[in-house]
Design a protein around this nucleic acid. Sequence first.
DNA 1: AAATTGATAGTTTTGTTAAAAAAGTCAGGA
DNA 2: TCCTGACTTTTTTAACAAAACTATCAATTT
Lengths: 206, 206
Amino acid sequence: MMITANDQQDVKKEKILEAAHHRFLHFGYSKTTMNEIAGDLSMSKALLYYYFPDKSQLYVAVMRKVSDSYLKSLSDRINTFADLKEAFIFQIDTQHDFIVTNYNFFDFFRLNEQNLPDAIWEIVTQVHESETKMLVSAIKTEVDRGKIKPVSNPTEIVELLLDALHGVRAKSVSHKKTMFPNKEHLEEIRAKRLLLADIFIKGLMY
Amino acid sequence: MMITANDQQDVKKEKILEAAHHRFLHFGYSKTTMNEIAGDLSMSKALLYYYFPDKSQLYVAVMRKVSDSYLKSLSDRINTFADLKEAFIFQIDTQHDFIVTNYNFFDFFRLNEQNLPDAIWEIVTQVHESETKMLVSAIKTEVDRGKIKPVSNPTEIVELLLDALHGVRAKSVSHKKTMFPNKEHLEEIRAKRLLLADIFIKGLMY
DNA sequence: AAATTGATAGTTTTGTTAAAAAAGTCAGGA
DNA sequence: TCCTGACTTTTTTAACAAAACTATCAATTT
């Protein structure tokens, strides 16, 4: 099989993405320089600019890669859930791992908060839509099975649940300085979210 | 009835609190100066320091006043709810109004986020405890009435609900620059919270 | 004695500018 | 086409002076 120039380019681009990912993940966006990334690969900074137009678009490309694997893990499991609760649990655990694993990577994200580049918002929107899609599908299935009440607007319900889960925090965190949640907090949050999902399904009433 | 020196002091303190409240409310903590507050009252800045030890403690005193009225509205209604849903609705509406009415006032709050003075945290904690107490009481009553399942830890449930409600956001707000929510958003959030409270009680299952 | 103030000391914020660091460009070489 | 060293431009940092503000206090009025 012939190796074309484009294949070679793709291989090199991939190497760059890996090095960039490594730097962004460990030191965050603002504390990694193009020189460092180039240095890690023993190439000149100018070459980075040959492959990627600028730093932010390099970041976006890495983010694309990272979120693609997240999206894949979602689509792999869609429609495979035994019941709604299993789907909720999967959502909570998977998103949780995703965010924890990439915590530093997202500092760019948190830092710019407002006016992020459109490309980032596209990814965020896509991720959110995939999560929603997966859970909406799980709800519809459960309705079809006659396990839960018919729901007029499943998307609305799912987005409400995602918002609600997002609001769940560790008890002490609001006071303490450490915004970087430690292990106990992560577990506490996870446990609370699972409880919330459970109530969301069953309610407090008989 | 005799007017003592202390009565006079209290009257003046009250005047100062009003003027300070007005400034803090409209311009926030960092953008109001002691000179301005004094100017509004046609008194010297030094006199403010005669009545209050420093700016932050003046702020705390105003906050105390503001939150006392909120606490009162909660305690006035405790144990007066026809059912759990009514309690949840009251909580949502009342807190909502409280935050919206005092939005700018709380900028000090948001600005310092970490390391707020202890006095502030006492108030926050007290407010949170009152909200929790009211809702826990409503849950217990409802359990006694046999309307909902017995709950092993009502406080945990209530705190989970409060977190969840806190997570509810307007759909578009995450992207737009305007963090100050406008009327439609406020209504949208309120509506979503009411829906969440409803699901929280009834669940999705039959 | 209690209430009040002008003057002023001390601290924080803001603005300025120069140096350093980083992003980004380009002519030219392999 | 891929790649680099040298270069230009933009952004960040550091140092420091000016301005704004908080806080204090001796002196004055009530």
